[in-house]
Simulated scan of single mutants.
Amino acid sequence: MNRLAIAPLTLHCGGRPVARYEIRAEAGDLDRRQSPRPYLHPVTTLGGTPVTEFAPVDHQHHLGVGVAVPDVDGHNFWGGRTYVRDQGPTELDNHGEQRHREFKLCDPDGFVEDLEWTAESGAAGAAGAVGVLLRERRTVAVTQLADDAWALDFTFALTNPGHETVTIGSPATNGRPGAAYGGFFWRAPKEDAAPSVFTAAAEGEDAVHGRPADWLALAGGGWTLVFAGATAETRRDPWFVRTGEYPGVGSSLASLNRLAIAPGDTAVRRLVTVVADGTLDRARASSLVRKAVSA
């Protein structure tokens, strides 16, 4: 594997730059407690409005758009503290790293990438051999939907390369109700006013958080993001939503139960996000999602 620094990729849509993909082969200038990983930031609308945030003061381990999981066989690939049952959020030396292996395809409007999810073995605080818990194939593509909207199509496939079952958990499965974060996650910019959030049938953080929905929209100052599961399995995952504390949306891999991946098996999720200028109503959000998923 090439351990040298790799220049970030810039993704284009309609001839305009809309996202930068940063690859971290080493922990580099990211604190290991942030669980170093590749991420998309900045992501912008076609009009140039930023719709991601990187390492904000409130949660420095929120890194734009990517895949982050707080518990893979006890290793933290989310960053920050680990939720320990009957103990609460705890600082542990258990942070893993997503390491870029190679690009299988790399174009101005997307890429296919192979990664390894690695963690040190041995007792907490003691250095040990680096082990590969998961191998990932990540496919990202951008598509223009309209003059004011484009779509980010993000698929990740997690394969267990070992001889024992690997399980994915969340604070919710470890005893913290309502905190089933872990999987695809998008940290949006924090503005003076909290963004609005709605689905086809509900509105507000309390009404949409922790529930599955075909699509979910987050609307801030001059921008709207519409998230949609593009496969039946992805649509069954509940949405993790925050608007009051901070603006962020994710899809929960482990809501009520841990997700088990047997040796040689693969768990696949595909999410499509509409990135639009302005504030969308339900009708237009739904229309753009249909177009994005079928593109």
Results as ranks from 00 to 15, higher is better:
192 D>H: 14
187 R>C: 06
159 T>R: 10
176 R>K: 15
165 T>Q: 13
175 G>N: 10
163 H>N: 14
161 P>L: 10
174 N>E: 15
189 P>T: 00
165 T>Y: 09
178 G>T: 11
178 G>D: 11
196 S>C: 12
169 G>K: 00
181 Y>L: 03
157 A>M: 07
178 G>L: 09
181 Y>Q: 03
197 V>R: 01
197 V>Y: 08
180 A>F: 12
170 S>G: 09
174 N>D: 15
167 T>D: 15
196 S>N: 09
179 A>P: 07
174 N>Q: 14
196 S>Q: 11
152 L>F: 13
158 L>S: 04
160 N>T: 06
154 F>Y: 15
165 T>V: 12
183 G>N: 06
167 T>L: 02
175 G>D: 11
160 N>S: 08
162 G>Q: 07
188 A>S: 04
189 P>A: 06
197 V>Q: 06
171 P>T: 03
160 N>F: 00
187 R>E: 03
179 A>Q: 13
178 G>W: 10
196 S>F: 12
183 G>I: 02
166 V>E: 08
173 T>Y: 05
171 P>V: 08
164 E>P: 02
159 T>C: 03
189 P>W: 05
159 T>L: 05
165 T>G: 04
175 G>E: 12
151 A>G: 09
183 G>M: 00
172 A>N: 15
188 A>Q: 09
190 K>D: 14
168 I>S: 01
190 K>Y: 08
166 V>L: 06
173 T>L: 03
189 P>G: 01
163 H>G: 14
186 W>N: 08
162 G>F: 07
191 E>P: 02
166 V>N: 09
193 A>Y: 02
190 K>N: 12
191 E>F: 08
168 I>P: 04
185 F>I: 12
178 G>V: 05
192 D>Q: 13
169 G>D: 00
190 K>W: 11
176 R>A: 15
164 E>W: 11
158 L>G: 10
179 A>C: 11
173 T>A: 10
169 G>L: 02
192 D>K: 13
159 T>D: 03
166 V>M: 05
154 F>D: 10
192 D>W: 05
170 S>T: 12
187 R>T: 01
158 L>Y: 13
188 A>W: 03
180 A>M: 13
172 A>T: 13
152 L>M: 11
192 D>V: 11
167 T>K: 10
159 T>S: 04
155 T>G: 03
182 G>C: 11
183 G>K: 05
155 T>H: 11
186 W>T: 10
184 F>T: 03
165 T>R: 15
194 A>S: 12
164 E>F: 12
163 H>A: 15
183 G>V: 08
180 A>W: 12
154 F>N: 04
191 E>Y: 06
165 T>L: 09
160 N>K: 04
186 W>F: 05
186 W>A: 04
151 A>T: 02
